[in-house]
Nucleic acid binder design. Sequence first.
DNA 1: GTAGTCATGTAAGACGTTACATGATTCT
DNA 2: AGAATCATGTAACGTCTTACATGACTAC
Lengths: 188, 188
Amino acid sequence: MTIRQAILGLLFQQPQTGYDLKKTISSSSILHWSGNNNQIYTTLIQLKSEGCVESDISEPGGYPARKVYRLTSSGKAELLNWLSTPPALPEMKNHFLIQFLFADTLPAGKLAEILDAYAEELSQAIAFEQEQSRRSLSETNLTPGQRALQQLAAQNLADHYTCELNWVAKVRKGLNVSPLTTLLKEEE
Amino acid sequence: MTIRQAILGLLFQQPQTGYDLKKTISSSSILHWSGNNNQIYTTLIQLKSEGCVESDISEPGGYPARKVYRLTSSGKAELLNWLSTPPALPEMKNHFLIQFLFADTLPAGKLAEILDAYAEELSQAIAFEQEQSRRSLSETNLTPGQRALQQLAAQNLADHYTCELNWVAKVRKGLNVSPLTTLLKEEE
DNA sequence: GTAGTCATGTAAGACGTTACATGATTCT
DNA sequence: AGAATCATGTAACGTCTTACATGACTAC
């Protein structure tokens, strides 16, 4: 349940509503959960029952009640505690890699076609992340330290997409030189 | 449900039991689901009810019955169909990146410590993947084409871990030069 | 007037994980 | 004798996704 920690972290940056959190999380490639992630609301309710967050209703009388959440000291403690946790390796669920793994079933030429489509999609993703990285510089409601972290994190994603693109180019080049079945001999 | 396609792919390579699939999947960094992934059995039962796989009992009378599964033509069709699906971007659930994103809450020095621990873990993962890549060369029950794909896929993972390690080194270096709060100024 | 955004929430499902249960065989 | 591995399966759980429901306000 990383969404719990993501919420704690965002609320530490500034108190905000569930809707604000939802927008931030869905537009962030790093906090990449569903764009319509209503788990946020249930998690907020749970966090409140555990005393990690408190909420005030701004503009009373409105519908639905606009609840602004903020961290309690207990919530801050949990966040700090999690931040000190030993880091874990990234989980890379690369569905394409599984497709690739069984691709010798495909007719010749089809793999090349798919690799090209993948390369195109990666290029777009890299452009998007670099735009995000640039945009994070102009976020006014963050401290310089927070902006630095955000920019470095966005760069991390762009780096990985670039790495993937390089890998595709390498494989694609190999496919041009020789068909799949003879690829291995070069390595031996 | 990528485990479904992974099973179809593995059964295409060779008929085998659920236990065999489980070992292969749990030891593969690419097909990285739980090491004790009993979802495989339920998926096999489902695939059978849909006519994608068939099973024979080898060594009848044993307990539990050793069921060897193989693909039907319908299963092969589904696999081929999925292989031609337009490729999707990798889902990188990098929990560490979320930790990093909120790390300005941490006392100075603690972030550097965590980055170092992360770098160490990445180095180990890279060594492991390169060992896996080497090992895939000597798998006897695969065709040369399949071995080539497997080796390239293993290399893909090693590439990503290396990319992550480079990123950590970059960040770490920046931390030495200047504290977090002044990091951004260099970029502006 | 209808589409979109603001704003909160419930409920059902998909997917993956963990724990448990059973019992045979093989290794130490 | 006890532990590990072989081998299959069920059940509960945790996490994330999708769909639905409500209703106000704003923009075209």
